[in-house]
Amino acid sequence: MNTLIVVDQPPYGSWAGREALDMVFSLAAFDQPSALLFVGPGVNWLRSNQAPSGINQKSVEKNLSAAPMFGVEAILADRSACERFGLTEATLVAGVTLTDSVPDTLDGYRHVAFAG
């Protein structure tokens, strides 16, 4: 039963994305095939060199980098949203697969869910 968790909220301004990460980690813990898809302002999760110590939060960039180790199968991002927010190959974190068609990506998963 493959599940896609979608993140469309930017990091740090709310906890919604962190709660999406907990969902995908728990699927991985129970060996359920799972992936993350970042769309809209959510793609800002994927910018490298985040340094949130000044706002006393933990780095979502570092949290997210544990995903492959736990068995999360893919980190996907909407290419057009990345372009809109000025994310290029040079500024994207490693291991992200860009998609040109969000509808096609959604079709590939039995379950599609947001954290909130």
């Binding site: 809209g40 969000v102 947001f114």
Partner: peptide
């Protein structure tokens, strides 16, 4: 086919994402 249940106001960014995801 997919059933989309939408609860966000049309100005909400997720409404736009939903429209783009629609087949």
């Amino acid at each position: 086919d997919t059933l989309h249940i939408v609860n966000k106001a049309p100005d909400h960014p997720r409404f736009g994402t939903f429209l783009r995801a629609l087949s």
